[in-house]
Design a protein around this nucleic acid. Structure first.
Length: 428
RNA sequence: GCGGGGAUGGCCCAGCCCGGUAAGGCGAUGGAUUGCUAAUCCAUUGUUCGGAAGAACUCGGGGGUUCAAAUCCCCCUCCCCGCGCCA
């Protein structure tokens, strides 16, 4: 969420940002918030004065009683104050709530380099890497390919859990684990601490991380429990330091989160419906950084280059795009996507998303940095996919397909799976 | 699930029985002083509004009683220990 002080002192920064986003609804909301805040401040002042009077009177009564003098006159005045105070409190509380809810709904202030656009087609390409392989045979959709290799069973998964789930089997399980271990090992070498977080969170913590109201239809909630299954390890890792003050000397904190992720979202996704591209459940290795405000842009570049290093080592062609205003969402100030080449769709598809959330997420979670007793400020948070295994698997299965129906395993992954070089079709 | 104990400022902890400005310690920051890996002394060290002076708020959350609630009453949440059940 945004800082009310920013809106109070520099409303034009917020106005210009919403203009850039061309978000009329939020522009209207911003002006409403400014109005509520003005009213809140003047009413608070009055309330303050009445409370002050109450405290003074109360103290005088106390003094009189100690001296065993008559206090009935003062007590009469004191008896009338609470009702007035209560009425004012109600309005002040109401305004406060309206302001807070409004602030939660305003998006983060964008970095100046964020391009203007209406949807993902307007994202700006920054660079490309890798050579796109030409295939002289017909590529199988990866879902079909996996079934012919006997390494995935969508049918039976559907029988017991419905669409959006899969039984991964045999070498596919090894490959999935290899991707995880490969990413974990590399990032650990870069100084990131591995974290396997709780896979479920309470509502209060989840509300700090994201706006549950527009996320609710995406989240799985446990029945009869105040617990939500996580949609990404970004969420519990970000919430880990909720309501804490972190000593600036130990920043940045760099984590590599590993979790299974659960999302209800699913729907039509064009070509190759059967497959791993969008699932209710998938594994993901995620990078997360808590840092000092002045360092976050440096770390944003670091995160995307880590992700690039992983895909380069796996020799998967990709491009980096800078998300435009229409695609960036509310939390990030700037977001890169890494899109892997899909030879079947003949286009790049999102496999990594890398965001600098600046102080937006941290303010909501109430995570500050500084010295205890010294000046405190809201720190910055950043997150980026390292490898979402399901989508990386799609890229490998498509790009490394061979005419005989086998799939070549990227060399860097082989040490993590008994030096297996290819996944061969099962002999019938 | 049952029984017991807890939640107080960045951390530890007192106050609660018996209502009247939230004590003390640790850590941190600033200063003073002295040379002995440092010690000692002083000050500051929750949030908000305000240019400032100042004031208000703050004892897990929400109600209530009262002129006045950390303290009394009611409801709720979470944490810890033991038992039970279980991977």
């Amino acid at each position: 969420m945004l800082d009310i002080k920013l809106i109070r002192e520099n409303p034009d920064i917020a106005r210009k940002d919403l203009e850039k986003r061309q978000d009329r609804e939020k522009m209207k909301l911003l002006e409403e918030i400014i109005g509520w805040d003005t009213e809140w401040r003047s009413l608070s002042e009055q309330l303050n004065a009445d409370r002050h009077r109450r405290n003074v009177v109360s103290r005088e009564i106390s003094d009189l009683k100690k001296e065993e003098k008559d206090a009935t006159a003062l007590m009469k005045e004191a008896a009338e104050l609470p009702e007035r105070i209560k009425q004012q409190e109600e309005r002040v509380d109401e305004l406060r709530k309206m302001i807070d809810l409004g602030l939660m709904r305003l998006p983060n202030i964008l970095h100046e380099s964020v391009p203007i656009g209406k949807d993902d087609s307007d994202n700006v390409e920054e660079r490309r890497w890798g050579e796109i392989r030409e295939f002289d045979f017909d590529l199988k959709p990866h879902g079909e390919l996996m079934e012919s290799l006997g390494i995935a069973d969508f049918e039976r998964a559907r029988k017991i859990a419905g669409t959006g789930f899969v039984f991964m089997m045999g070498d596919l399980v090894l490959l999935d684990q290899a991707l995880i271990n490969f990413a974990l090992e590399y990032l650990q070498e870069q100084g990131y601490t591995p974290v396997e977080p709780p896979f479920a969170m309470r509502r209060r913590a989840y509300e700090g991380v994201t706006d549950l109201s527009d996320f609710e239809d995406v989240m799985y909630k446990l029945e009869e429990e105040d617990l939500y299954l996580i949609a990404t390890s970004e969420h519990p890792v970000a919430a880990m330091y909720m309501d804490e003050i972190i000593d600036e000397d130990i920043l940045p904190l760099k984590y590599v989160g590993l979790s299974t992720n659960f999302r209800k979202e699913i729907g039509a996704h064009g070509l190759d419906t059967k497959g791993l591209f969008r699932m209710h459940q998938f594994n993901k290795v995620e990078q997360f950084i808590f840092c000092k405000p002045e360092d976050s842009w440096k770390h944003h570049e670091e995160l995307i280059s880590n992700a690039e290093a992983l895909f380069q080592m796996m020799k998967i062609p990709y491009r980096i795009v800078n998300d435009c205003t229409g695609d960036i969402g509310t939390v990030a100030a700037k977001k890169y996507d890494l899109e892997a080449w899909s030879p079947r769709q003949k286009k790049y598809q999102e496999v990594v998303s890398c965001s600098n959330c600046t102080d937006y997420q941290a303010r909501r979670l109430n995570i500050r940095c500084g010295k205890v007793g010294g000046e405190k400020r809201t720190l910055h948070t950043l997150n980026s996919t390292a490898i979402a295994t399901s989508r990386a698997l799609v890229a490998i299965l498509e790009n490394n397909q061979n005419p005989d129906g086998s799939v070549t395993i990227p060399e860097v992954l082989r040490p993590f799976m008994n030096n297996l070089e290819t996944i061969e079709p099962k002999k019938q």
